[in-house]
Amino acid sequence: MSTLGERIDWAMRQKLKTRKQLAEELDVSVMAIGDLINDKTKKPRNLLEISMVLGVNPVWLQSGIGEPFEGSTDISAYTATEDDEDNITLDVLDIEASAGHGAVNGDMVQVVKQLKFVPDQFYKYYPGITPANIRIINVKGDSMFPTFNNGDLLFVDISIQYFDGDGIYIFTFDDTLFVKRVQKIGRDYCIISDNDDVYKPWYIKPEEASEMFIHGKVRVHQSQKLNFVG
């Protein structure tokens, strides 16, 4: 499968999808899908969306590197091929938000990649999301299973750097970075792992609250499909 068109055609056959079905899910014409399969499209703009619909690794889809279904949620190596200034651009940050016991000295500053989305496709897949407020990171570990799996993408709203009600937050505490569910119980913050058979809840007391810095609140996570976080 040396060409993009061959990889798309192969992935469609694995998912038993016709050109018409794929076109409808992507909101494009059947002719546009045919052009992709026949390698007539010079600068395809919706490879990320195609990878999500077909459930394949977007890096493999774009370049042929790696395995089709291995690491299909890790798109930090994906590079958009369209330079249209009208596209929506999201930053992928150099960070490993730990869903286990925490990542030491985590940082949400360095941008390592940028993903570009066609606006119509972005708002179709991410309704209600303000692009300017969103940064993308990968999650590591199993403490938030089954809500998150290791390698899932987290779409983090960095405009929320305070406790905004119960939800899943990216935060630093005691120089350690976490992705955890946070609840307020009385004056304490209760830090909860969804994999509670292994990871037990713990508390941040009022006198420790100044050591807790919230980087953002998780709005969406992506594995083989999009999942909105409540």
Rank of each mutant, 00 (worst) to 15 (best):
I192G: 04
I191C: 03
T81H: 05
N46T: 10
T73R: 09
W60I: 02
K200M: 13
V182D: 05
I136G: 00
Y126I: 15
D194Q: 00
Y169I: 10
K180C: 14
F213I: 14
D164T: 00
Q224P: 01
A209Q: 09
E25D: 05
M212R: 02
Y169Q: 09
K113V: 07
L90C: 04
E49T: 07
G106A: 09
W202S: 12
Y162F: 15
I192P: 03
L48H: 06
L48R: 00
A103L: 03
N195Y: 11
K184R: 15
A132D: 02
D27Y: 07
D142A: 10
N38G: 06
S210E: 12
R181H: 13
A209F: 05
I204F: 08
P206D: 14
E70Q: 12
M108K: 01
I137N: 02
I136V: 15
V179H: 04
M108Q: 06
S210I: 08
M1Y: 09
L4P: 01
K225M: 12
G5M: 05
D166I: 07
S159V: 14
P58W: 01
N133Y: 10
R45N: 05
S143W: 01
Y126A: 12
I37K: 04
G71V: 08
A80P: 04
V59W: 01
Y126T: 14
S143K: 01
E211L: 11
V112Y: 03
K200C: 09
D35G: 01
T147E: 09
E24F: 00
N38L: 07
W10G: 07
V30K: 14
R135Y: 09
I214L: 07
I65L: 15
K124W: 08
T81E: 04
I204H: 06
D94T: 07
K205F: 15
D188R: 10
D107P: 08
K15I: 08
K225T: 06
G106H: 08
E49N: 12
S2Y: 12
E211R: 12
G5V: 00
V28D: 11
S143V: 02
E67K: 14
K17P: 11
N133K: 14
I65M: 15
M144Y: 07
L54W: 05
N138M: 07
L54Q: 04
D86A: 14
P119T: 13
V118M: 09
I134Y: 13
P146H: 01
Y123F: 15
F122K: 03
K40G: 06
N46I: 13
K17Q: 13
F173M: 06
D164F: 04
N57V: 06
D39Q: 05
